[in-house]
Amino acid sequence: MKQLIRRFRALALLGIQALILQPIKRLRNLKVSGEARFLEAYTPDRLLPLTVEERRRRDRFNACINCGLCDVSCDLLASVRRSRLPSLSSVAVGYGRSMTEYPFARLSLEELSSCDDCLRCEAACPRGVPLKEMIDDLLAHATRLDKAGFGMKRLSAGSGGALELPEKRPLAAAGMEKSE
């Protein structure tokens, strides 16, 4: 008998949650856009929402097979700090596949600020990776992450230019803050 009551109570609670509480929560959430909720939940992990078009472009970035033929074509490479940007292909290999690495990509790509868009690197690529487009795209995303407060920030002077990432908040904690 006791067990039956307990079971009934549990089912009733579930019913209330499913039929009343959940729809109310849904309605409240409607006011906040899907993008805002995505950003809140995933930017701490340095993930940003992508449009369908942006995702399609990533397929082309991923075509890199690390053959290094673009490196041979690039004259700029001779004048960059190689400890930061060892090669052009390292951008595609190191960052083209993983968004969570983008803040680091910024550091490498700053070395390419004097690139004059000769596009010889793209002409040399057997896989047709749009390197210029990729570099612009990585920088744009790194900037977006910076703005959201999850990019790479420089430590103040005296640290010898060392860099640090902001501490990653646990995803659950980030979610809790929202509902309070």
Binding site: G68, D71, V72, L77, A78, R81, R82, S83, P86, S87
Partner: peptide
């Protein structure tokens, strides 16, 4: 300084 990173072609 950065000689350690030079590519074979360079």
């Amino acid at each position: 300084a950065d000689g350690a990173f030079l590519l074979p072609v360079e």
